[in-house]
Design a protein around this nucleic acid. Structure first.
Lengths: 105, 105
DNA sequence: TCGTTATATCGGGAATTACCGATTTAAGTA
DNA sequence: TACTTAAATCGGTAATTCCCGATATAACGA
């Protein structure tokens, strides 16, 4: 992911955020420890999809797609460990995007 | 427009911005004086739709819809004077939204 | 009043998004 | 190997968005 965003990348990121469910998930990930326990520590590797899905109350495929969208927008990292994919906020990228939005506005 | 934004209002605003053309227009409106002359001073009342449409290179109806979207999102004000509707950035609201996005992220 | 200009709104086709269930892939475990 | 669990991907329907041309409205000017 480059340091600068062009029009389309910015639009893609904003589109990912233009969905209450995805923004909500991003907010939840600020407190990974509030999710049910998992083998790997959520504060380190992130929260596994199952737990995100459960809290969001959507289907498995929808949850997976949501996270893929957020990942494509560069807002979360994904770490596969064993059978689990863990999602964690990419704080640096989020700050970068926030700054970009601030400037674009 | 209230001082706080709920999930849906935030989503609506982000959706309005999730379109390069609309973001571009919002950027142009930072320099109203770079548009062709018009009867009313653009720096005061804003830029008339015609000029926005011309620069954007879209149809009249599309330009009108773009501005209605930005207006609905609270990002611009519209001032009708005679046959012209002038659009101007609502800086206070834009700052408010930017801050909201920063916090939501 | 009639004609013109500026804008808004209507109606629609194409493209995209939202979300789902079904299936596939990947990894663990017996 | 076969069974189970986790996640990704596929295929599809409904809803939404994009952008247009056509039409309606509003305001001006002759």
């Amino acid at each position: 992911m480059p340091d600068t965003l062009d029009d389309k990348e910015l639009a893609a990121a904003l589109k990912a955020l233009a969905n209450p469910a995805r923004v909500r998930i991003l907010g939840w990930l600020k407190e990974p420890e509030t999710f049910p326990p998992q083998l790997e520590p959520a504060t380190e590797v992130g929260v596994c999809l199952k737990h995100i899905q459960a809290r969001a109350g959507v289907s498995q495929s929808t949850a997976s797609q949501y996270m893929a969208d957020l990942h494509a927008a560069g807002l979360v990292t994904s770490t596969r460990i064993g059978q689990w994919t863990h999602y964690r906020r990419d704080e640096a990228q989020i700050r970068r995007l926030a700054e970009h939005i601030r400037l674009a506005l």
